[in-house]
Design a protein around this nucleic acid. Sequence first.
RNA 1: CGGGGUGUAGCCCAGUUGGUAGGGUGCGACAUUUGGGAUGUCGAGGCCGCGAGUUCGAGUCUCGCCACUCCGACCA
Length: 480
Amino acid sequence: MKNDKKLVSEITSMDVDFAKWYTDICKKADLVDYSSVKGCMIIRPYGYAIWENIQKILDTRFKELGHENVYMPMFIPESLLQKEKDHVEGFAPEVAWVTHGGNEELPERLCVRPTSETLFCEHYANIIRSWRDLPKLYNQWCSVVRWEKTTRPFLRSREFLWQEGHTMHATVEEAREETVRMLNVYADFHENDLAIPVIKGAKTPSDKFAGAEDTYCIEAMMHDGKALQAGTSHFFGDGFARAFGIQFADQNNQLQYPQQTSWGVTTRMIGGIIMTHGDDNGLVLPPAVAPIQVVIVPAAMHKEGVLEANRALLDRIKAAGYRVKLDDSENSPGWKFAEYEMKGVPVRIELGPRDIEAGQCVLVTRYNMEKTVVKLDEVEEVLAAKMTEIRDGMYQKALENRERRTYDCTTLDEIKTALAEKGDGLVRAMWCGDEECEDRVKEVTGVGSRCIPFEQKHIADTCVCCGKTAKAMVYWGIAY
RNA sequence: CGGGGUGUAGCCCAGUUGGUAGGGUGCGACAUUUGGGAUGUCGAGGCCGCGAGUUCGAGUCUCGCCACUCCGACCA
């Protein structure tokens, strides 16, 4: 059939070429366009609307937990960046520098923020004096620049949008609690709103954020079995505070250094949504962040009464609180079906003369293409149930993929065999804690350490690599 | 940053031994259509990625650069 042919030619199949499939979706679903600067993407209205929905949900949660939004400058003087040694060393290779203002060379070059710990610290040094000033719970929504070598839309761009929380606390316990609390916010958001199952855990020492004492992360598995770091939360101790001279007088009038955290998620999450839920017909969006949650496609639109009935349905669904669109354009229904499937709209409702006569409409859920005939009277109730069902179904589907592609291994050979026979995936294996073994596992098997999960599973007594007593079970994988 | 691939209309692509650019799709108008990407007619749309060079003449040959893309090393 001609239609089928066209569909196939639109997007590369994910089984044929996952990477190509990914970029096809990004472009064909109107999420991004390329700009004239390498690695800098234009986020188009449909893609940006997803980000705005993500922002709304997270911003609300941050504020519920007492965080306040601020805005820091985008430039960091070189001397400021250099105050914390590990931090500079970590970021130096990928910062962009501003060296001129107009035609004048600047006395000190400015780096375009790759992250803002140093700026927050400089400011905190000025505003924190007493235990009464703590905690400081600041967050900012902004973009940062990291001069990446290879770039991909959403997954790795040289400029990306994110949110960075930076907090200061009086005690270690309180700061550690904050670090875990925010990791949990990210994990809940991924699982409940994005329908992406995540593994919570700690990064190994070699994989920690530059300057952090502990880095926690959530790891998600993409459809192709590769891992995506979806969010991070860091505990800094007082390392930065000492470097920046931030001190407060405690209740005994003793000077103390405050304990610091930072945490962030980025537009990369959109890449995560695409690669977790998408299929060969295009994007599949979780209802919570879909710019359009319901699209109404009229059939035989020009027959008498059809458009009116569709408009009435639109008003009702809108009144019920959904982001809904009626496509009354002149395109054929078939065109519209394909279009909104490409864009990942969670629910499509078809309403034509036959339905109107029968007092019903046809409801199709995107993630499984299931058709349901719904009585018009019951649309609101059915929609409410469907939205939950969609989120649960998408989550389940993603979880099954992850479980099918998670392999427990006790030797390096087992890892190699599992990956070769079952395909890319996450490997659960024991680790002694030595960086040498960590490197060797990657060298020999191709999978690197992703995280030491909070939820441990005992697979063996000894390290998968050296055979010494194991300290922890580690998730290993190929990372995006 | 190494290795490969690709840059021609918005998109996909053709373009012969070098002779001044074409198809499909999309776009605009009109008509007929509309339950899985409709059809016809007319029309608009090009610094052939950018810059040098060879040549009477370059989309085509040479060199350089840039971008995209894939595979590796680094990263949210």
